[in-house]
């Protein structure tokens, strides 16, 4: 009996809220659109279904994965304090880590104990031609060797040999090849970060390659 009342009250409040939200949703956008020629639907707004993060770089206690009931959580440094003065990007941590390092704003250690050890930097760009119409990929060894050691990538993830590695965007998105880091820790694959890798424009006389079907067509 009591459970029945409990569920009834839950239902009643849900119904009230649904009605309330609908009424709000119907009314709120109508005020935004002002037209001289008459009423225009308030539905024609940008990003209607896109939810943006309310707060970027939230402090640990408010970030959803740290437990606010834990005392240690409140001792941890909030990221925004650390990011003060660093160059920004539009993805990942919203910090341009490579630029921060180049500008000398950060001095992370290359050796655990000795702060004076300098990294083994190799300045070699690898150009990977892309079969599709996207600009070709330029892989710069320089920023990678500033952070990493050769053995992190070679030979397990990338065979250090020309044309030995088959890389596709789907593999990267699923966490293989470049995706071992990019999309997890280093800058992620978003529509805003394509040109960071696909940075070399196609030559002027570039034409899309013919498909298998048209190459094998006997009446060609």
């Amino acid at each position: 009996m009591k459970t029945k009342y409990f569920f009834l009250s839950v239902l009643a409040i849900t119904a009230l809220l649904v009605v309330g939200f609908n009424a709000q949703a119907a009314q709120a956008p109508m005020k935004e659109v002002k037209s001289a020629k008459g009423k225009v639907s308030g539905a024609n707004i940008f990003n209607r279904l896109l939810k943006k993060d309310k707060q970027r770089n939230a402090p640990p206690a408010e970030d959803g994965i740290h437990d606010p009931a834990n005392d240690g959580t409140h001792v941890l440094q909030p990221p925004l304090i650390a990011y003060d003065g660093l160059p920004t990007t539009e993805f990942g941590n919203y910090v341009d880590w490579v630029k921060s390092l180049d500008d000398g704003l950060l001095k992370p250690r290359y050796d655990r104990f000795d702060p004076t050890v300098e990294p083994l930097v190799m300045d070699l760009d690898i150009v990977r031609e892309v079969r599709a119409s996207m600009p070709d990929v330029v892989f710069p060894h320089k920023p990678h060797t500033q952070w990493l050691h050769c053995s992190n990538c070679h030979p397990k993830i990338f065979i250090p040999q020309r044309n030995a590695n088959v890389i596709s965007m789907s593999a990267i998105l699923l966490g293989q090849k470049c995706g071992v880091c990019h999309g997890k820790v280093s800058f992620p694959i978003t529509t805003k970060s394509c040109t960071k890798c696909h940075s070399k424009p196609k030559p002027a006389d570039w034409k899309p390659p013919k498909s298998e079907a048209s190459l094998k067509n006997p009446w060609r």
């Binding site: 992370p108 250690r109 655990r112």
Partner: peptide
């Protein structure tokens, strides 16, 4: 990563 490079 502010304090150490990935390599460490």
């Amino acid at each position: 990563r502010i304090r150490f490079r990935c390599k460490v």
